[in-house]
Structures are given as C-alpha cells and as structure tokens.
Design a protein around this nucleic acid. Structure first.
Lengths: 191, 191
DNA sequence: GTCTATAAACTGATAGAC
DNA sequence: GTCTATCAGTTTATAGAC
C-alpha cells in the first residue's frame, strides 16, 4: 500500500477536528501544526476553507456509501440495520460525531456546495433505510407501523441525536443502547 | 413591563446566533453590531466568551424548565409529551436548534462549567421524560416496551437529531412528522 | 510541494475617559 | 454603561523563492 499523501493526511486531521470540535473550531494553523508543515502548504492543497470543507464532506460521503454498500450485503434486513447502526456506534465510541451531523449544526455558515452535500447525505441515508425497512417488512423480517419513510427519518434522527447526547453525557458507548432499542422496536411480534 | 436591558438583548442575540450558526461562529463584534454598541460594552456585561456561554445556557435551561413545568400540567401523559415535542417543533420552525443540542456539537470547545450545564440539561430532560413515560404507562395512557429510561433517551435523541436533519433538508416543519410518529408509537393498542 | 514573508481582517480582551 | 483607543494573537489567504 502506498504511503498516505499530505492531502489525505490533511483530510484525516480535518475530519477528526470537525467531528470532535466542529467546522468553525479548527483552523489551517491547527491542521498545519498537526502535520508539522506550514499553513501556506495547507493552502496549496486546499486554497480556501470552503474547498477543504467540500473535499471533506465528499470523501466522507464516499466512504460512508461504501460502508453502507458492505452493510447492504447483510443476510437479513435486521442484520443490515444492526450493522448500519454499528457505523454510528463506532463513531461515538471514538468520540466523534457523524461528519454530516456535525456540519448540520453549523449549516448556516457553510458554502452552498457543502450545504448541498449535507442535504444529499441525509436524503440518501433516509432513502436507503426506507428501502431496507420496506423490504424487511415485506419479507416479514422487521415490523413497524405506518410508512417506511417516516420511520426511516426518525430513526436516522435518533442516531444523529443520540450521538450528541452520548457525548454530552460522557457516555460514548450509549449507542449500544440505541442499537438494542431499535432492534427491539423492529422485532416481529411472536404470537 | 420593563424595557429589556442591554444584557438581555445581548443574550437574545447570542442565543439566536448560537442556535442558527453555532457557538464558535459568532463573535463579540457580531453581537455589538446587532445592538449598535461597541465590543467593549459587550465585554462590560460578559467579560469573557465563556461567561457569555454560561449565562446563555443557564438562562436557556431556566426558560426550558419553566416551559416543561407548564407542559407538566397537561391533562394526560400523552398530552404532556405532545406539548413537550411542540417546544422543539417551535424551535425548528424558527430555524433554530435546541441550544444545548447545538452546544453538544461544539462540546469539546466549551468551558468546563458550560459542559456541565449541557450535561445536566440532557440528564434533566431524560429524567423528566422518563417519569412521564413511566407514570403514563402505569395509568394506561401510553404504551411501550422495556425500561422508560431507555425510551426516554432515544426519544430525546430523536428530537435533537430530527432538528438537525430538518434543517439540513430545508424542512423546518418536519418536527410535526416526528411528533405524529412519537404519538403513534406510544399509542395504546385497542384490542 | 513546501517554504518564508507578508497582508488585511478579525478575535477576545483590557485600560481608562466620560 | 458606554465610549475611544489599543493590544497581542489568530484567521484566511497570497506572492514568490527553493
């Protein structure tokens, strides 16, 4: 495997800082110091902070989609959902928020392009989970009332929001409870 | 009624900016310009930004608690929960996040005292809702599986999180769907 | 690609006059 | 309480040498 490029290392560090501190709480200087280079070198790779933000959210979405693709090969809808929640549980355990959840908090301060990416992230996630829920209900693997779209939206909100409260409560493992709750909620009643 | 003091007007503006842009995305200059005073005058009322943050979160919590107290006089557990969700729905409609949800996103950048207030906000909210859920289940007004504490936590996470996705999706009214979903979820099955 | 040097604007903050 | 004046440090960003 090739050694990581400076660009990738910058994105790694920016992602960490954004997920732990927020997009407006880290600077080019902080990135430069983390990599032991100068701020001018950071600007070589990302001329403006908006450019950095866009690269950040685009890479995150690509990785996220590839994780979701892996999850989508799960045996049952229930397994797929459990593995999906695990993505968030892993983030919370490493004291990070979902990048797009973090960016949603700073939404008004983002460039139009980044705002669009964050909007698309939520739309794509909601659509994916909606599909899994609907297929799962048809297959009799999960159970819930009403439209799959509505449940998809509130469950994704629940994941994003419990990451916030887990952090504020100093309980980075709390997403395990969220996972259990969701799986119990979706459980097919045994008559 | 007395005219608002400068201090209160500063807190109003800071609250708005924090809920719409985030704590690290507004400055003393922005506050000063909004009130048409000078930054030195802002520092007279709040010596440091940490002082401002603390006053902000304390006032927010007091107001929130008084709203919750009003809600608590609701006729049934179901009504109480519906009115509680309305607090969040009103915030979302005015394009604001819950102040403590917003601060949770910037958690690592906050002073210890503010972090403590945010932590306590979540603990208090979760405890209140837990009590309402438990009493409601006993009274046969609401229905859910498992421990009230677990459901309380995921529902509050759901409220905080759907505010994020509602904003990112440009759908400030989406909390109405969240409210409907929660009330449907808690509905007592009619046999 | 990374550096030095530099810039203008902004940030949180303070001293002291009115 | 609000102002003027000032501060040191930071922030994003650019020009040009190596």
């Amino acid at each position: 495997m090739a050694t990581k490029t400076t660009k990738d290392r910058l994105l790694d560090e920016a992602e960490l800082l954004c997920q732990t501190r927020g997009f407006n709480a880290f600077s080019f200087k902080a990135l430069a110091e983390a990599l032991e280079i100068k701020t001018a070198s950071v600007h070589y790779h990302f001329p403006t902070k908006a450019d950095l933000g866009l690269a950040l959210v685009q890479r995150y979405r690509e990785r996220f989609e590839s994780q979701v693709a892996r999850v989508s090969s799960g045996r049952s809808s229930r397994d797929r959902i459990a593995s999906y929640v695990d993505i968030f549980a892993r983030l919370a355990r490493s004291h990070r928020l979902c990048l797009c959840g973090s960016l949603a908090g700073d939404f008004a301060t983002l460039s139009d392009e980044v705002q669009g990416e964050v909007r698309d992230y939520f739309a794509a996630s909601e659509a994916w989970l909606e599909g899994v829920l609907e297929a799962g209900r048809t297959a009799g693997e999960v159970s819930f009332q009403g439209e799959a779209r509505a449940t998809s939206r509130v469950l994704i909100g629940m994941l994003e929001g419990t990451m916030l409260s887990a952090r504020a409560s100093g309980s980075p493992n709390r997403l395990r409870d969220t996972k259990r709750w969701i799986l119990d909620f979706l459980a097919v009643p045994t008559p």
